[in-house]
Each structure stands twice: as C-alpha cells, then as structure tokens.
Design a protein around this nucleic acid. Structure first.
Lengths: 206, 206
DNA sequence: AGCCTAATGGAACGCCAGTTTCGATAAGCT
DNA sequence: AGCTTATCGAAACTGGCGTTCCATTAGGCT
C-alpha cells in the first residue's frame, strides 16, 4: 500500500489529467451526497467517473485521500465576506453563510465526510484545519474593524469570536444532530455578540 | 446482510453471554484507542476478545454497531453533577467534566468514533443524540436553580446554555482539531455566562 | 511534425472481510 | 439432576477490494 505519490498528476497537469481529476472529484461528491463517506468505494468512484480504477488508486490512494483533495479544492474557492458596516450585520452574514454551507446538500455532505475522515487520517485532518484557519482569519478582520470603530472592547479576540459564532452550529450538526436552523444561527450571533460586548473575548493578562 | 437481531443475547443474558459482551466491548475500546474507528475490523475484535467472529457479526453486525453499543453502555453510567451553590461554579464543573472526558484516552477515542460512525449509521446517530440529550437535561437543572436564585434572568433556556458551554470544546475537537485545553474550557464558561447574564438565552417571544 | 515519457486503463491475481453451515456448549427451567 | 434450546464458535466458502503488470494514449518540448 504505497502512499499516493504527491507528484502524480502534477508534472503534466494539462488537459486529460485535469479532466480526470474533475470527473473523479465530481463523482466523489455525488457519491457522498447519495451514500455518505462510510460507503465510499474507490471502485465505484472510478466506474462512475468513467476512469480506470488503477488511476484512482494511484492518485488518491484511499477514500480519505479523495475527500481531502475535495476539501483542498474548496479551500481555494474563497467566499467573499460582505461588509455591512456594523459588527452585528457582519456576524449575521457570517452565520448565515455557514448555515447555507452546512445545509447545502453537496457542501454539507462534503463537510461531514471530511470531519469523519479526519478522525482517522492525518492528511484529512490537516486539510480541515487549513480550510477553517483560513476562513476564520478572513472573517476575524471584520471584528478588528469593529474594535477600531469602537463597537467592541479593545483587545477583543477576533478569531475566537468568529469561532464562537460557528461552534454551536457545528455542534448541532455533528454532536447533537439536531437540524441546523436559521433561528439557531441568529441566536448564536446574539449570544456571541453579547459575550463580546461584555468583554468576555478580551484575552486575560496573566 | 441481516440486521443484528435486537434480541440476540437478551433472552439468556446470564454468565457467558454477558462475559462475551464485556470482552468484546473492552476489545473494541482498546482498538479504538490504538487505531481509531476507521481501522476497526470485526475480525480483529473477535480475535482480541478471544471470541468467535461469527458471534461478533451476529450480535453487532458492523463496526458502527459495536461503537453504538459502547455508547449506550456509557449512557447508563450517569456522571454525578456537583452542586457548588453558584452558577459560575456549576458551569465550570460541567466544562471541566467535558474537558476530562474529551481528553481521556478511552472516552475521547470512543466519542470520536461514535461521531464518525454517526455520519453514516442511523443507530449510531440515535445513540449519540440519546446520550447528549440526557446529559444536557441533567445539567440544565442547575441553570433552573440559578434562575430561581436570581443569578440569571428569568426565562433563561437551561439546555441551550449548557450546550453553549460544550459547543466550543467539541468544535475544537472535531472541526478545528486544536487541543482542547483547560483555558479553552474556562473561557467557554465565561463567554456563555456573560451572554446568559445579558439575557441572550431568554427565548424571544414572537 | 515528431519524439519522449508521464499518465492512463484493461486484465489478471491474491488476500481478507463477511457469510453460511452445522456441531458443541452452557443457560434457564422443572 | 436432567432436559430443552439459546448462544457460541470452528471451518469452509464467496465476493470484492486493492495490487501488479503491461500495453496504450496523449501532454509537453524541440
């Protein structure tokens, strides 16, 4: 069981190689939507993508490798973050974006697959970390602006505040497995914001 | 592929049957700690438990069935919740209990396994929901007491507050995959409590 | 245009997870 | 104690996953 060589498909990434990758990732997402990560079979993906299974094994190695590549692909599609001019509006926009991503059939299935894969595969875990670190960093900027405008206490930790908005939504998705509703998203914003205004996101000095 | 009959081992649950179950669940936890859910093999569990693999397949059916049974077993071991006499102390006790559970090698591995299993198995998902619903209901009581004492605004939603304390910890465990530290646990309490005091956990009347 | 070789994919193979069969064992009951 | 049968487990079987081999195709470069 060789690790898939990281360079396979990177020396001649032209036409065919790119088409194969697109077809395989597409087929992977379809399979995730229909049957979920646990039922992901390299064989079936190859057949569905109209590609030799040898190729799938060579380039991706395992089901975890497939979803990892999928996540890395998503990481490159940076979502634009609106700037509503007020921290409450910005956080709401963030929460609603997360809400839509989670409830979108394809994206939601992909997220759950990567989360499942990450419990047992270091590459998948890294892809997950990278994806969220980037998203969080991008959105933390709107918190910094709000602090500069005097909307939030000085020293408020932007990354932690953004994480606090998402956390209850993912908690519902993955742990309590309740539906993730618009109400839950907006309530999460209210709570995070109340805590932020009370200074609970200002780092304690030791 | 028959579903494992729900009654298998329940008509004669005496000596041998109980010993087999104990040995298998023990072996399952060991395997989860060492290799994680994705590498769980019914064969190896049977061998490790010193039990015929036919029996393991008959009674549990799939790896997801094994971790589901494990979770149901944990659900019966109700953890005592301390009553420190103040809501801040109570929530801290709760957060530290969650922290310890997540970082305990055996419990932590089991939680992650069930979370992974639940993404693709309805029984595992149900076991997960049942487990947390129960824990949350138990702890929500301390919030009600705090409201009665006048520590928190009337109408504060106890279940939501308890969930808000845990959510960031599980978010770290499963999504951002950062270490879940004592500092994170205490910070989560501070934030949830600040929001609660500001009335952000009082249900909006429509 | 034509060469070189990276990349693909068909076919055959080995191995192991999961199933089936049936005899052995021991739990529960009188 | 002795009977009944639920439960267990060894062995043989099957199917599909993952690998290997090698011929074919088509990027990239001169």
């Amino acid at each position: 069981m060789d690790r898939p060589s990281r360079s396979a498909g990177t020396v001649r990434p032209g036409g065919r190689t790119a088409r194969v990758r697109a077809a395989v990732l597409e087929a992977t997402q379809d399979a995730l939507v229909e049957h979920g990560f646990h039922a992901l079979s390299m064989d079936q993906i190859a057949a569905r993508a109209g590609v030799g299974k040898t190729t799938v094994y060579r380039r991706w190695g395992t089901p975890a490798g497939l979803v990892t590549d999928l996540m890395n692909e998503l990481a490159n599609q940076s979502a634009p973050h609106s700037d509503t001019g007020g921290i409450e509006g910005d956080l709401r926009a963030n929460a609603l974006m997360v809400l839509e991503a989670i409830n979108d059939p394809r994206l939601g299935a992909t997220f759950q697959a990567v989360i499942a894969a990450a419990t047992g595969d270091e590459e998948a875990a890294r892809a997950l970390r990278t994806f969220y670190r980037r998203r969080i960093d991008e959105w933390a900027a709107v918190v910094d602006l709000a602090v500069a405008r005097g909307e939030l206490p000085p020293g408020t930790d932007g990354k932690e505040l953004i994480k606090a908005v998402s956390a209850p939504l993912y908690y519902r998705l993955v742990v309590t497995r309740e539906p993730v509703t618009r109400e839950a998203a907006l309530a999460s914003v209210d709570r995070a914001l109340a805590a932020a205004r009370a200074g609970a996101f200002v780092a304690e000095t030791v």
